[in-house]
Design a binder for these strands. Structure first.
Length: 252
DNA sequence: ATGGTCGCTTGGCGA
């Protein structure tokens, strides 16, 4: 994370799978890196999400879905001088296990229920700021160009029709647009994740786009630049995901 | 069809 901050100098960083209990989150160390405003929730060893910001955060909330306190959704309103109030939803959607069948696999059922509950809530919500961002590890690659082989992955968890439909339903729960595909053509292969289970992750480029950033329609023209930092997959002790970086234009 | 890696909860699990 320090390398990312040094090289990219982001205003806001959103983390998923922090795997650290809320009380043990390294608030001071992260503050020293230039992010004094933080919103974090975590449980031991699993999940955990955090928002780190140079600008003030307010109205932070943690949401639990499927009656689990599993630290997969935190949101907060950022008040930046360049953009005003923007509510950021940081999500870690359940991965869903290996078998794409809700009868045989509880994890897959959980993944779909999580998305459905979240969608319903979004749809019925009122009083939220007009500008919103929804981002995170959504663990679904919806488009054909979001996976290395549409044919070979269509029955693999993360790229099945039922998951893609659930993700679409979430996208329709508000005025969301996919900020990344707004800037990268929909038929251009684009990945954010490469499995650890390959001797050489670059071989065959067997990636998937599991990480996303959506913005409300009123931010469409503010999207300046979109980047998936592929080189970070080769950094020392890398994550299997690479940072998704979106730059916004300052409001006039 | 299976296994491959990573990191912890040091077994087997979750990813």
């Amino acid at each position: 994370m320090k390398r990312l901050i040094d090289e990219v100098n982001p205003d806001v960083v959103c983390l998923q799978e922090t795997k650290v209990v809320t009380e043990s989150f390294p608030y001071n160390a992260i503050s020293d890196l230039g992010f004094p405003y933080q919103a974090a929730v975590g449980i031991k060893s699993y999940n955990g999400v955090a928002i780190l910001s140079k600008y003030e955060l307010s109205k932070t909330e943690v949401r639990n879905w499927c009656e689990k306190e599993d630290a997969r959704h935190i949101f907060s309103t950022i008040n930046s001088p360049d953009m005003g109030e923007v509510e950021v939803h940081n999500l870690y959607v359940p991965a869903g296990g290996d078998i794409p069948d809700i009868e045989k696999n509880d994890k897959f059922a959980h993944k779909l229920s999580f998305l459905n509950e979240l969608s319903k809530w979004q749809k019925n919500r009122s009083g939220a700021p007009a500008k919103q961002i929804l981002l995170g590890d959504l663990n679904i690659a919806p488009l054909e160009a979001d996976v290395w082989s549409h044919k070979q992955l269509m029955n693999i968890v993360s790229h099945t029709n039922i998951e893609i439909a659930a993700l679409k339903n979430l996208q329709n729960s508000g005025p969301w647009i996919d900020a990344v595909r707004e800037r990268v053509p929909k038929d251009e292969k684009l990945f954010s994740w490469w499995s650890y289970r390959a001797k050489d992750w670059t071989k065959g480029n067997r990636g998937r786009r599991l990480d996303h950033m959506w913005v409300t329609e009123n931010m469409r023209s503010s999207i300046e630049k979109v980047q998936l930092l592929k080189e970070a997959r080769s950094w020392e002790k890398p994550s299997d995901h690479v940072p998704l970086i979106v730059t916004f234009k300052a409001r006039k």
